[in-house]
Each structure stands twice: as C-alpha cells, then as structure tokens.
Amino acid sequence: MGGLDQLRQLQQDFMHYVLGEQSEIVTQIESTPVLSAKDRLDIYATAYKLRLKEAISTDYEVLHLYLGDEQFDNVMEDYIAHYPSRITNLRYYSINMTALLKTRSPFNQHPVLAELATIESSFANSFDSHDRTVVALDELAAMAPEAWATLRLAFQSSVQILPLAFNSFEVWRALSKAQTPPTLEASSESLNWVLWRRADLISHYRPLDGAENAALSLALQGESFAVIFEALLDFYSEEETPMKAVSYLQSWINEEMLSGLSY
C-alpha cells in the first residue's frame, strides 16, 4: 500500500483513536524522549471530547442548570458516544439532543429533559433562521372577499410549534433567570406553544389554545383557509368560525409570523 491509500488508512486509524475505538495509529506516531506516541495522540482524543462538550454546553445551558454538572456530563458522554459528528458546522452538532433524551434510559424516564432540550433547540433554530419579508396588515385589506377560501400563508422559517406535556416553559424561564424553578407538573391537557422570531430579531413564545393550534398547524402545512375553517368547526359554531379565523390571521400578522399571502 502506498500513496493516497496509505494516507487514507492513516486518517481512518487516527479517527478511530480519537473516537476511542480499536486503532493501529500508535505505531505510526513518533515518540519523543519525554512523551510516548500514545500520550501525544491523547491530546487529540481529549480535545475531541472537550470540543463537542463545549458545543453541547453552549446549546443547552438551561438543561445543564436543571441537571447539574455531573448528570449533564452523563448526558453529554452518552450523546457523544451515540452521535459521532457527521456535520461540518459545530452549530448543528447537538440537533439530536431531544431524540436522545426521548429514547435513551434513564433520561427518557424524565420527560421534562427532552422538553427543555426542545425549547432550547427551538430558540437556537429561531435565532439564525432565514430572514424573510414580513406581511403587513394592509396586504390583508387589499384582498378580495372571494379570495379567502383559497388563501394560503407563508410563515417565517422561525415559526415552530412545541408540544409540551409539562410546565417546562415555566421551568426553563425560571432557570434562565437564575431563579428556583417551579415544581414540575404535567399539564391537564396537552399544551402547545408557538415560538418565532420577530423582525427585530428577538424570539418570542406564547401558549396556543386547542383551536389556534389546529389552525396554525394546518396553516404551517400550507393548507388553505377553506381547510382551516373546516377544522375550526370542531371548536366554534358556523357563525363564530369566520371571525375566529380572521382574528387568528390578524394576530399572526401583528406578531410578524407571516412572510407571504397567496390566493
């Protein structure tokens, strides 16, 4: 073996060592009078973990506060073991944290962990999501009455619906202000929150009631207002529904969630 094949083998052996796997790389590294090949390689293996832990810690500060150093370190160790980085930009390394906390024992026995991770990753997604134009209310006024049935909405890419079964937003809010979090409580009914970024680049969040969640979910899926009216009939009478739908639309526009109207 020579040339590029030899270089490839060296890189694979090196990476196996960094990942803590069986590797022959140590035979290809020069020792010095004071440091063995292994000691020299360990500088890279240690740095690998530290770098990934730093990235995770930056992304999940509140989860870290909730768990404390030791438990959070367990989470990070498990994450790094299960997710060798396959991304180029460290900004996106920890995007599978919610999935890990939902599926891996013992973390999945504490659903608040996955919910806190969802809140923090949603803020991160909102923070640097695409910049799009913002729809103004007068665009709505310019719409012909017959256009309502076919109206579809385009949203800011920051708009996300977070399904949370616990009072995790209250826990998150208290911890992020360095306050004692409230006792963890399951919501009496499944509660959804909307989180999005306004034109001033600040992210906002608020709870959604069942009707608005149904309407917003359908609108985000690109469904027409005719479909949204239909869904709202599960919550309101035929007389109330059009007014409710319009008031949702107005509030989404006022809150700068929308980037376009098509009809």
């Binding site: 020579g2 040339g3 590029l4 030899q6 270089l7 490839r8 060296l10 890189q11 694979q12 090196f14 990476m15 960094v18 990942l19 890279y44 740095a47 690998y48 770098r51 990934l52 990235a55 060798p84 980085s85 396959r86 991304i87 180029t88 460290l90 390394y93």
Partner: peptide, 21 residues
C-alpha cells in the same frame, strides 16, 4: 484534515509530510 469517512473531528489534524500528500 478534519474528517474522514464523513466523521468530523472538528479539529485541525496534521498530515504526514511526504510526496503523495
């Protein structure tokens, strides 16, 4: 080099100094 087989070390890893490289 930073990655091989699509696994990224996120580190600046050294290369051997030879003609093929």
């Amino acid at each position: 080099w930073t990655h091989v087989d699509q696994v990224n070390s996120h580190d600046l890893l050294p290369l051997p100094y030879d003609e093929a490289t």
